[in-house]
Design a protein around this nucleic acid. Structure first.
Length: 302
DNA sequence: AAGACGAAAGTGGTTGA
DNA sequence: TCAACAACTTTCGTCTT
């Protein structure tokens, strides 16, 4: 696109800097435009063969569309590629083609299930504000579940919720089962039951809940100072070293550690407040708190 | 009065005979 | 299959600040 630009200084010697994405006047140095897109390919070809090999077109593959965004759609316009009107005979042929196109792409049960499930998945993911890679992972897990026939007798919603929760765990995105269940409008119990089922069948690798991330989450939710946060992390390290975290729900331990940190730094947070953000009960905090205090000796000023 | 504490009973799951 | 069990929750009365 050849376009002659003139700088304010009157010069027309304007070059584009592809690295910084800026349009610069070589006479006076003024930056005329700073957000330029390089719409060329990112590869270089030195002969037509290479060019053929490197050229590629089309949207990226995605698990989030039931056919991965790959299938062909036949236009509804009754005109051909060059814009000419179709003959009656040709129109009928197009109609038949479209009909079969639809039947073969979306009418098998797996595909129909996927179309519905993936829109539900996107809705839940929106509500939980999940990043793209977690969505893709969830969609991938759900596909696996469908192709292995794990949906039978279960609602799409609950299986989608399980897949979403599993994806969150895999991608280290902290969302509680309760949050996911709520977004999917099912009960925690049902979500848990389906998650276990999915887990047993797929046997995926699930990392432990990252306690550091839990601390970060609670700290920001409770608006606790950085000093207390550091204290909390130290307590957690001690607890880990003393093997107090084994067999305990990470939420409980983390909440208790934060509670202790708050008391030590005299930054008052009630058990109730912390319990609410950690989605556990005060009793659990108390129990973990007691265990931590018994084993780790603090200079307690209670 | 709010918050902390602790006992008791209940829940839903795992384990091992 | 079923009882025992561990972890956690719910509920509620009592104590402390």
């Amino acid at each position: 696109m050849a376009q002659t630009l003139t700088c304010e200084c009157g010069s027309t010697k304007i070059v584009s800097d592809n690295d910084s994405g800026e349009l610069v006047c070589t006479a006076c140095g003024t930056v005329l435009d700073s957000i330029m897109f390089n719409q060329g390919p990112e590869w270089r070809a030195f002969d037509p063969q290479q060019s053929d090999k490197l050229t590629r077109v089309g949207a990226p593959l995605t698990n989030l569309i039931h056919d991965k965004g790959l299938s062909t759609t036949i236009s509804w316009k009754s005109q051909d590629g060059t814009g000419r009107r179709l003959t009656l005979e040709e129109k009928e042929r197009q109609h038949r083609l479209r009909k079969w196109q639809r039947r073969t792409t979306t009418n098998n049960s797996v595909q129909r299930n996927l179309t519905q499930a993936l829109s539900e998945l996107n809705r839940i993911a929106d509500e939980l504000k999940l990043p793209q890679n977690t969505r893709e992972t969830a969609a991938h897990l759900y596909r696996k579940a469908v192709t292995q026939g794990l949906i039978r007798g279960r609602t799409i919603q609950s299986v989608v919720a399980s897949a979403v929760y599993m994806a969150c765990r895999q991608c280290n995105v902290i969302r509680s089962l309760e949050d996911v269940a709520k977004a999917a409008t099912i009960t925690r119990k049902e979500a848990a039951r389906n998650y276990r089922h999915l887990y047993k069948q797929l046997q995926p690798e699930i990392p432990q809940v990252n306690k550091d991330q839990l601390i970060t989450k609670y700290v920001s939710a409770l608006r606790v100072s950085g000093l207390t946060e550091q204290l909390c992390r130290r307590i957690m390290e001690k607890a880990k070293a003393q093997r107090l975290t084994i067999g305990r729900a990470p939420e409980g331990i983390t909440a208790a550690a934060l509670y202790i940190a708050c008391r030590l730094s005299e930054e008052h947070r009630t058990q109730g407040e912390i319990a609410k953000t950690a989605q556990i009960t005060e009793v659990t905090i108390r129990n973990r708190y007691k265990e931590l205090m018994k084993t780790l000796d603090f200079e307690v000023q209670v």
